[in-house]
Amino acid sequence: MTLTINDLKSKKQYADKSFSVIVLLGGTTILVILAVIAYTITNRSTDAFRIAGFKFFTGQKFVPNGTPPALGILKYIFGTALTSLIAIVLAVPISLGLALYTTQVAPQWLKKPLVALTDLVAVVPSVVFGLWGIIYLAPKITTLYKHISDLCDGVPVLGSIFGKVGSGRSFMTAGLILAVMITPIITSIAREVIETCPQTDRDGALALGATRWEMITGAVMPHSIGGIVGAIMLGLGRAMGETIAVALVIGSSAAITSNLFSSGDSLPAVIALQWGEANATAKSALIAMGLTLFVMTLVVNFAATAIVTRSTKRMQGAA
């Protein structure tokens, strides 16, 4: 069989065309998967929404096998919000310190080990942090909690925040573990953003007689603040969705309280812990909780991605 030049050309074009279709399909899977996630999960949640109505979000009782079933998840939303808040409050200063130390202070030889240290924290699986938290940390940290609680006893606001200590499995312990887990995410994005700060800006600040800290607050931070806010929000999204570590250390007793040392429950933790014994109604309610969580993280991540994209664009313009 002989091939003419034209045959070869059309064959080549055919191969070229089909390759472009394949890669386009590869890219489109992301769009398709996200759409299917949204559709299937919403579809399965309708039972729960039909039973509970809007009370799903405002009700405080969750007894899916009762007659009639009570499906209120407010306590779990509270738990998710509170643990994520504790995690953010603790993780942000540490992450910023880590990112600034790595980029601005550390000598050249120390930079790579510091980056590796941060990445190493990210490699430890969340369930290992959970195991460590429940067996090792929770029993030991109660003494510290008791000290803080005794110190704050009687003080107006602090007394109710750092109140009675239970088993050590609490909002606070969950927040602590979450803080460790989101630190590498915030740190690595903050580091990248900070590194885009032009050397000339920093040299300029130093030439004007600024100390290193003044150089950081005067030149580096104004340049990077948008990206850092985005990084923090990505960390928040991760903290809200973290399941296993929280499920193990939060103590699993739903409560709305200002006491950080009390045990509570969060959306993902409830889904994981109650899944095994769940009947059909309960499964629908748990999937509806998943949907709530999905929407919450979606909002946070949309905002974060928009902020990071906008600020990187502006920085590229400036550089």
Binding site: I41, G237, G241, L293, V300, N301, T305
Partner: peptide, 27 residues
């Protein structure tokens, strides 16, 4: 379209792992 996909990749990276599990369970 590429810019949309890039944005959605970021969004998908932020979907909690438990939601992925629920999705595969239902689907």
């Amino acid at each position: 379209f590429a810019r949309l996909l890039r944005f959605l990749t970021g969004v998908m990276a932020g979907v909690p792992s438990i939601v992925m599990g629920l999705f595969i369970y239902v689907f």
